[in-house]
Computed example of a mutant assay.
Amino acid sequence: MIHDHRRTESDDPMLIDPDTARALLGGAPWRRYAVLGDSIAQGVGDASAGYRDIGWSDRVAEVLTAANPGVSYLNTGRIGATSGQMLDEQLDRVLEFRPDLVHLSCGGNDLFHQGGDTDRLRANLETAFAALAAIGAQLCTFTVADVWDTGRMAPMRPMRGRMAELNEIVRALAARYDTVLVDFWEHPLRLRPDLMSADLIHFTTSGHAVVATEMIRALATRISAPVRPA
């Protein structure tokens, strides 16, 4: 596999520079940012040469805090967590934190094996979305990217259909709960040859940097959007 060693965090065309990122989130109304879910929420991934070894969620929190001093951050994401475990082990802790901005990414582990129960997954995610929306938090999330067309990903190709199902669930819930959604399914990031970690599941930190940029852009759009009537 050919890696593009010339691309670094300072000249990656998919990234925004730190000053721009802080400017985009300057004046954000949120002061308590929480993330819950699985390893994708946690920000797991192999290090990429030329990029800081930091996950997307920590990057977003870093920018939000730098732009708005006094922001608190909680990430309860855990490797291997299913949606049921997220409800049992993380949701109450996040609700007690009283976030006004909360990101939820979970569900891949429910469907990782053949026969995953999409109805149960949908119900579990709806429970979490509804509980978080009920405290007045702004929700945000993203879909998984369609990375399964490259040769290296061939062993994981059977997952493609199930991850597409997960994305449909996430899109529907995002629309229902006025969620800031970044849709990565067809994002050009998916075509980078060095995107995936050795486990073929998680993005490398170069991918996390792009994910953070897109989340920051999406949140900035919500900051500047007109307030919806209640």
Rank of each mutant, 00 (worst) to 15 (best):
V44N: 02
F112H: 05
T150G: 11
L91N: 02
R160G: 05
L189F: 10
D19N: 13
E186W: 09
L166G: 00
E126P: 07
G50N: 06
N124V: 02
W148S: 06
M196L: 14
A66Q: 12
T213R: 01
S224G: 10
T205V: 14
V94P: 00
Q42S: 09
S10N: 13
W56E: 02
M153N: 05
E126K: 11
A131R: 15
A220T: 03
V227G: 01
Q90P: 12
A175R: 15
R192M: 12
R120C: 09
L200T: 02
L91A: 04
A66F: 06
H202G: 03
I169A: 08
L219F: 06
W185Y: 10
R152I: 15
A154N: 12
D194M: 08
M215Q: 07
T20V: 14
G27E: 11
R222D: 07
A172S: 15
P13S: 12
N68C: 09
L104I: 15
V182Y: 06
F203M: 08
M153I: 04
F129V: 11
S83H: 10
R78A: 02
D17C: 13
S57Y: 01
I169C: 06
R171E: 05
A164T: 03
Q114Y: 12
T118V: 15
Y73D: 05
R120Q: 14
A47S: 15
M156S: 11
F97V: 05
V170W: 00
Y51G: 01
M215E: 04
V144D: 01
R22V: 13
D17L: 13
L25A: 13
E168S: 10
R22N: 10
V147W: 04
R192Q: 14
G45Y: 07
F184C: 03
A137F: 06
R157V: 08
C106N: 13
A41E: 05
P193S: 11
T141L: 07
V211E: 01
R192D: 09
R160N: 08
A137H: 04
L74W: 01
L166Q: 00
N109P: 02
W56M: 05
